[in-house]
Design a protein around this nucleic acid. Structure first.
Lengths: 325, 325
DNA sequence: CGCGGCAGTACCGGATGTTAT
DNA sequence: AATAACATCCGGTACTGCCGC
């Protein structure tokens, strides 16, 4: 390598990683030659010696791959890793039977919305390498090194406050099924907020990724149960069908009903009316996971193993009154 | 490694890769010991010697990351690679200024919907390693080793035939802008089909990922220009707003108008009426790219450098007449 | 003497500890 | 004391050559 074109061989190694033990002029010469030959360290060769692979494994939840959220998250991870000089290996999903480790040669893993039900997740935990989870892992496992979580409880509370500020008195909700940490948090926050005001919850649970009809039925049902003047629809993709069902029920958004979704989707800005929801900022979220993983590497015992992020409420027309009360 | 627990050292290497030159019984013993110690080859160490890295770089188009299509594609690549024992490195996007290679240590790249405009793509081509592109690269480059392409021309023709079979006489189209190979193919196929029947095209071009209003305006415009009894809306996400605009124009789908989208989206099955479109089968498409890359590795001179796949037309209610003509 | 089966060993490219200057 | 040269090692792969039949 540059050593031949330069001077020594081990000296070059020192120069390139600018460690002490080499004269400034030698270092400069080495760096110059290295740049000229556009030399790149051979990562595999280095990892042979250092047992560091310069790579992080990324495990996205199987099945949910159609939600744009995860793609954004993935690129948040990739870009943050890139800035640290790391590669991201996108890990394959494992069927229930196949517990082989998705990939061995990484320095750590980032997983998101994980469950211990998942054989792939278990295989990852079994490697013993650092694992950072985005959102709490359902069924928790103390082998998770650290987590970045959104404060869904506080977010839901803020959303309900926002609706209340806009004049809502009776707020209904269409919720996802229990089974993930965040749906649990949201449901609890809703119940608590309602209870705190001496009210009774008016909610329905539908699927995680519901069909149009399922959403429509739930919305219609909630609207028919009791008079509500605001509605929060949480499951992904339910904003559009909810708007539809609301119109068919003869209610008018911004007039006698406010509507908010939960997870923001590009479509929400395009609907008529546009729909209020939370930007979970998946890119930043992914980047935060990588940053936390890097901290885990640096510090052995991380005292605060959980980082909390606050979803950003994007207020749009659907929660704005046309005529002030 | 197992050599110590077994017998030799180089023999083990042969046994593990079942190469000739080792007796069946020795091989069995080695394999047994390997399994017992759950030994895994150290990929970096091997690549030091072989200059093969067991990894493929995946480059998704920057910006389009919100389309579920690409996520599906990515997992098609990952799963196919996994079956070949390869890892997939998700490559970061590069700004216009930064032409550094996204990652050096891969055996080849899979890119999709690429343009030579993209600095990241150029950096990938500059590595000199095999590159398989999903869809033709815009601005073509002969350093692309091979491509898997959808036959959009034939697909569009089939769609128009389908509409014609369902009784359509005048078919309008809302098209994406020129600038990608496939939008070009689709537009040409539309014009050709119309011309072949002695008609005149009735089309509008809107953005690649249009806003609701943009779609509505274009649809309204086409419907107002001239009497059309069928409409194809190509850009992603335009089905729902198109249905809306159609209703506002006083036309009834399945009655006096047929509507088809182009790229299938999960939502199309959920809309009312459900919308006909092409399933591009992105998972299979991604898998095909990996398969082709593997062929490029095996065979030096690949004679047919292009694989063609046929999109699958998913006929739904929006192109079915309620009352037969 | 030819040949299959296997042990011995140089080498891949860089990191690091040791010795020499 | 600072710097440079050298030796070793990381874990495999792929030669060469020895051995016995």
């Amino acid at each position: 390598m540059a050593a031949s074109a330069g001077v020594s061989i081990a000296a070059a190694s020192f120069a390139l990683r600018d460690k002490p033990g080499v004269s400034p002029e030698t270092r400069d010469r080495v760096l110059a030659v290295a740049r000229e030959l556009n030399y790149t360290v051979n990562v595999p060769a280095r990892s042979l010696r250092t047992a560091r692979y310069g790579a992080v494994g990324l495990y996205l939840p199987p099945g949910s791959t159609r939600l744009p959220y995860y793609t954004e998250f993935a690129f948040g991870v990739v870009d943050a890793a890139d800035r640290l000089g790391l590669s991201v290996i996108l890990l394959p999903h494992r069927g229930p039977g196949d517990a082989s480790a998705p990939t061995a040669f990484v320095d750590g893993y980032v997983v998101v919305d994980a469950t211990t039900e998942d054989a792939g997740i278990r295989a990852i935990l079994d490697t013993g390498r650092p694992v950072v989870s985005g959102e709490h892992m359902v069924g928790g496992d103390d082998r998770v090194s650290a987590s970045v979580v959104s404060d869904h409880a506080s977010a839901m509370t803020r959303l309900l406050d926002h609706l209340s500020d806009a004049g809502a008195r009776r707020i209904g909700a269409v919720l996802p099924p229990e089974g993930t940490a965040w749906s649990h948090d949201i449901a609890r926050a809703y119940d608590a907020w309602i209870a705190g005001r001496g009210g009774l919850p008016i909610s329905r649970r539908i699927a995680f990724v519901p069909t149009t009809d399922e959403v429509a039925d739930a919305v219609t049902d909630v609207l028919a149960t009791e008079y509500v003047d605001a509605l929060v629809v949480v499951p992904s993709g339910s904003a559009a069908p909810a708007l539809d069902a609301v119109a068919r029920a003869g209610r008018r958004i911004g007039d006698d009903l406010l509507l908010a979704a939960y997870v923001d989707e590009p479509m929400h800005a395009l609907l008529a009316p546009s729909v209020t929801s939370f930007d979970l900022e998946p890119r930043d979220f992914g980047a935060a996971c990588v940053a936390l993983l890097a901290e885990v590497w640096d510090a052995d015992g991380l005292d605060d193993r959980v980082r909390v992020t606050q979803p950003r409420l994007v207020v749009r027309a659907s929660t704005t009154r046309v005529r002030p009360t």
